[in-house]
Design a protein around this nucleic acid. Sequence first.
DNA 1: TCTGGGGTCCTAGGACCC
DNA 2: TCTGGGGTCCTAGGACCC
Length: 425
Amino acid sequence: MSVFALVDCENFYASCERIFRPDLKYKPIVVLSSNDGCVIARSKEAKQLGIQMGVPWFKTKKNFLKNGGVFFSSNFALYGDISNRVMNILAGMANNIEIYSVDEAFLDLENMNLENSDIADEFAMHCRSLIKQWVGIPVRIGIAPTKTLTKVASYLAKEQTKRPGIFSISNNWMEIASSLKKVPLHEVWGVGKRLGKKLSVLGLRTAYDLACIDISLIRSRYSVVLERTVRELRGETCLQLDKSLDPKKQIVVSRSFSEKITRIEDLFPIVNDFGVRACEKLRKENQLCSKAGVFIRTSPFRIKDKQHSASKFFTLSSPTNDTRDILNGIRKSLPIIFRRNYPYAKSGVMLMNFSDTHVKQYSLFNADNLLKQNDRLMKTIDQINQKENLIRFASQSEVGYTAFRKTNVSPRYTTNWNELPRVNE
DNA sequence: TCTGGGGTCCTAGGACCC
DNA sequence: TCTGGGGTCCTAGGACCC
């Protein structure tokens, strides 16, 4: 019998900021996206102030600060490190774990007896207090027979007063049904905005309504994906824990600009930066790519502006992770899609069609030994830059895209010697 | 003035093969 | 008048997730 747990860090980025700032314990906190563009995380208090997820910062800033709110620009070095610490604890608590995102993991609790709800609750409480004590992050835990139901449980765990942050559902239709009735349709894992709209036209309101629908209807009118969701809601395990350490299938580095760019001379250094960064990621994954592309677009929010969005992909003559190959491709591709006098707001570089470095396919027209030298060159550059970004390509921007607007970044408390927290005597 | 970044999977349709 | 059957691979687009 399958049993899964979902461990979900509450208000993750905001909670991370709070670890080293106990003075902010009951204050509303928001964390902003790059360029301080919009709100991407909110503490409980910020949610209570009515700050919506994804709202543009400039629209809510004044009101939020007036109410005593504190904001942070995103500090992914900190969040990544805290995430690792949480995941390490979880890895020690279950035979198998799937790290689903920076703030969420599924645990395989195979053989746990869910009929006795005390067992599940005790496990969850132990897990919760350990993470709180060792890392300082509050988590919510849902336990259920399918992954989709753990999401339901986690949602219901929010409202628990007896055992806050914990909820379990056993594999019993009566119990599942009563849980599902409390969950609105759009909260179901796998039902997004569009599907939610379509399904509500059919009169569905809750997760329970969806679970009761005729499977063959779902299959013929929607997709196999939604069919799995329905089956999982009924307690039938369709999704297993994904333990594979599959390599990525695509790497994207993209940013919005703090100021619109209209000249290709200004665009090139930034896009090249994206290319350099993307190749670093690719080498870290021990992969080669045989296709890459660049895209640019204007801001869809500025309706009065001329709009343009375009991408251009190029195929590499042989699979590569050599930054120079990608920069070459960008140099040829960007002018093809670029249009003069359009206010570009965002661009990015994508790498795809990966293959393993061990199975490198050499080109008929390149000398093998040259490729080996390139490998060593790239490795050396990576090693040097890992400590301090000293080596740059001439075509990269001098300041780098990291120079984009950030008005209030917290220190990298746990990953940089110079930014360790200080204790006053 | 100012609106994030990075992923995955599925499907339909076209090109091509024998 | 009549025009096969069974595949694979690739791409673009749509949906979802955090």
